[in-house]
Design a protein around this nucleic acid. Structure first.
Lengths: 177, 177
DNA sequence: GGATAATTGTTACATTATTACATTAGTTAT
DNA sequence: ATAACTAATGTAATAATGTAACAATTATCC
């Protein structure tokens, strides 16, 4: 997931985002430091797996990639680190896919985002809009509901996938597995 | 899930909703009929399991309940019927819980709802609001995104759980399992 | 009654996630 | 520097959720 694209937009498919990695790792180091925890080599390696994928990837995808890089870890180890990265706001989880992707925004205190998931290319875009937050707050207040966690996910086709394939699905299997 | 409560509200906890069952089954029979499919005894039994629970229940919960009622079925059988009921709009799926609950609204063509999930009592309330739909449509149009599926779920505490327990969790385990 | 589609069964397996406990590595205080 | 402490990872087993492939049965329609 790249932080060099404009806000609220899908990045150009296939673009090179190696340049974003160092920034993200630096930021992560700071966040860990603030919580007096360590960005260990293992944690960094897993975070990099997620950073270098535009798609969201699942816990067992991470195990596979680690193995290919010569390190075998147990599921629980991946989940522990994923939970930690998630708690720190460095990654987000897609409930629709049981998968994780890197959050490229600075959203310290803000969990008001919508995840747009393209089933064509797998890319995730996050939208942030105060109107959405306000409407949710108003509705919940009216219902007497105290919010603790919010999941806003939309699956569909991004512009380039729609244009290039008219809704077809030739390049890649569907993502709702 | 009971259809005798006012719209957009949590029902009184512990209320009796047996009275709603027949209406729901009648409606289901009509929906099946329209699609030239049958509401078989098995399908009806599973639908009743869901109708008679305010909580969302998982596929394997249904297997358990069926077994207690003397009928052993395989997971795939439950999933097939759940998918069918879901396609027909009779039940909804909570991605946050991998579980299903009965939809008590008449929402033929409308998938614009927000599920409020109380982690105290497990009750699900659905909110419907055109403002939300409009904002989503506008944002997606701007992003060039073609929506196919939308998940809007909020987990938290309903009024009575908040009032009676101040956020505590003594009566029941959390629902995010 | 035979063809056809709908429904359920059977078996096996794939995927996702957690529990419990042991071990190792880093940090702190003396 | 080492004992005591916390953070981090390992190990092993298993729970929970979901699907594939194909067979058998049941209803419907001509």
């Amino acid at each position: 997931m790249c932080n060099k694209r404009s806000n609220n937009a899908f990045p150009t498919p296939g673009h090179n985002h190696k340049q974003c990695l160092n920034d993200a790792i630096d930021k992560a180091r700071k966040v860990f430091s603030l919580r007096k925890l360590r960005l260990t080599p293992l944690r960094e390696q897993i975070y990099r797996q997620i950073l270098t994928s535009h798609d969201a990837i699942g816990a067992y995808d991470i195990l596979d990639r680690m193995r290919r890089q010569g390190r075998e870890i147990a599921p629980i180890t991946a989940y522990r680190i994923l939970d930690l990265l998630h708690d720190m706001g460095l990654i987000h989880r897609l409930e629709l896919q049981n998968a994780y992707y890197a959050c490229y925004r600075d959203h310290e205190d803000d969990k008001n985002f919508i995840a747009l998931i393209c089933r064509g290319c797998g890319t995730i875009a996050e939208l942030v809009d105060r109107k959405v937050s306000r409407v949710f707050e108003a509705l919940e207040k009216e219902a007497g509901f105290t919010e603790e966690k919010r999941v806003l996910e939309v699956q569909g086709l991004c512009r380039s996938c729609r244009d290039s394939r008219k809704g077809g699905n030739s390049e890649k299997e569907p993502l709702n597995a």
